[in-house]
Write a protein that binds this DNA or RNA. Structure first.
Lengths: 262, 262
DNA sequence: CGATCTGTTGATATCCTTCAATTTTGGTGG
DNA sequence: CCACCAAAATTGAAGGATATCAACAGATCG
């Protein structure tokens, strides 16, 4: 079993405070927002390509993914959403979704009214910049996926996605050392990595033989994370898990007293 | 030769006003920012992986690209930057770049001080939301690239990237119907699409034989854009070239008189 | 006007896919 | 708790798309 986070802090607050220290005022706002009010069973569509985006929401519990379905029925999974991730923070600016989002496990969401998002920039500048950072993280993950799909072979792609998921789970306190819950079928892995399920099986089997990992009962353990990182040329820098640069933090220390800060 | 844009509006203003009507106040600010003050020759690095990001800048003239170099020297190009595109709008929030940016042609940049970006959210809410939209566009393009690399064959990838570039050039007034300047070598196309230069040659040759396109002297003409779009399953919706949803525009009509608007 | 980068073509190799059959797992109801 | 069913995982064999290697032709630029 995976350890639960030590602190009762909600996942979004845990994530954002890594980037920039938040004020009591900020925590209060996050506490108010990050409250699950929508529930989905596993395997349900949360938002659908071509339809208007639902309200912005925070993934409070569970795992989801963004995907596109092609004309011939094939599917490409673009990102995975973990607790604390925001969904459609941007897409509330468009009239219709260019991709779909679906749940992988049972999922709890907290919907955020659009006005709150827009007001945030004015009333909670720290949260606002931290959300900006969070969306930059997501962009960096998309770029890394492009590198993996464009230039890495099947083994490296698999090693890479597993390393990324372990690191992301660690960042939100959902990893027990090198061990995480991984509620993904091999078909879903294949649709993420641009491979076939059959080939994913083969490569995973060979990794098991090489004592690189254990993957059973929806639990993943990386036995030799260094060798896997090497196979994948994985460098966690792109996840930008560190804090904001000094000058950004300084700017927001002032901003607390900024005339338009409240 | 490609026609120049009819209006003297700077590329960034042209791009943002598609999304939301701007005020005289906004245009003034953009006019002030969008002024080239840095010049690069073709093939130079503008910002380098592992180093601190340079200041945020607008690409005023020319074409650039984001890329990563792997340990074995292979390269993956992640995005192309066209006039009016912002570079490192987000990455000013991090300590070091996770990828590099280089010029493809001679390039003119307008650097924007970080404080200006941060102040923008408060003083120019319309520009701010339009920049937000612009970064959402970029994210959508990254996702589309993932779909292309993960699930499309070589011919479809090539057709897709050419369609995308034609549409993006149209959006900034740099396309003459189906014809654009395309200062890309086949090696660069290959590094963008996860292919080898040799294979790009073969596919392009076959497209020429099929009278789908003309590509010579760094000029691309799509002879049969419908058939190419069909090969690529290209749907321009992901480029989100339309205007903001009505409610967003209404919100910012009010915001002009908003107490914290200035 | 030679040097270098870019594009082209052919032959061969490889990684991954496709197809098909079988086993294992997980969930459900009796 | 077990029987049963559907979904997921596994394995083998064969085929196909793209890579690799190599040689040459064409463009571009000082």
């Amino acid at each position: 079993m995976i350890k639960l986070p030590e602190r009762p802090r909600k996942p979004l607050a845990r994530k954002l405070e890594r980037f920039i220290p938040l004020t009591a005022h900020d925590y209060e706002a996050l506490e108010r927002l990050d409250r699950a009010d929508q529930h989905f069973k596993a395997g349900q569509d949360i938002s659908v390509e071509g339809k208007p985006p639902p309200s912005v929401f925070i993934l409070v519990e569970g795992m989801a993914f963004r995907y596109r379905t092609l004309a011939d029925g094939r599917r490409q999974i673009m990102t995975f959403l973990l607790p604390g991730d925001l969904c459609d923070l941007h897409s509330f600016l468009v009239k219709k979704m260019d991709h779909s989002v679906a749940s992988l496990t049972p999922v709890h969401l907290a919907a955020i009214p659009r006005e709150e998002i827009l007001e945030m920039g004015i009333r909670y500048p720290r949260i606002s910049v931290a959300l900006w950072w969070s969306s930059m993280q997501e962009e960096a993950m998309l770029r890394e996926r492009i590198v993996a799909l464009g230039r890495r072979n099947a083994a490296a792609r698999i090693a890479y996605i597993l390393c990324e998921l372990v690191w992301r789970n660690r960042a939100i306190g959902r990893a027990d050392h090198n061990c995480i819950d991984l509620p993904l079928t091999q078909t879903e892995l294949a649709d993420t990595l641009g491979l076939t399920p059959v080939h994913v099986t083969r490569v995973l089997q060979s990794m098991r033989r090489d004592k690189l990992l254990i993957l059973e009962h929806r639990q993943l353990t990386l036995l030799d994370i260094d060798r896997l990182a090497c196979v994948a040329q994985f460098n966690k820098d792109y996840l930008h898990l560190g804090a904001a640069p000094e000058e950004i933090r300084r700017y927001f220390d002032q901003a607390t007293n900024h005339p338009s800060g409240y």
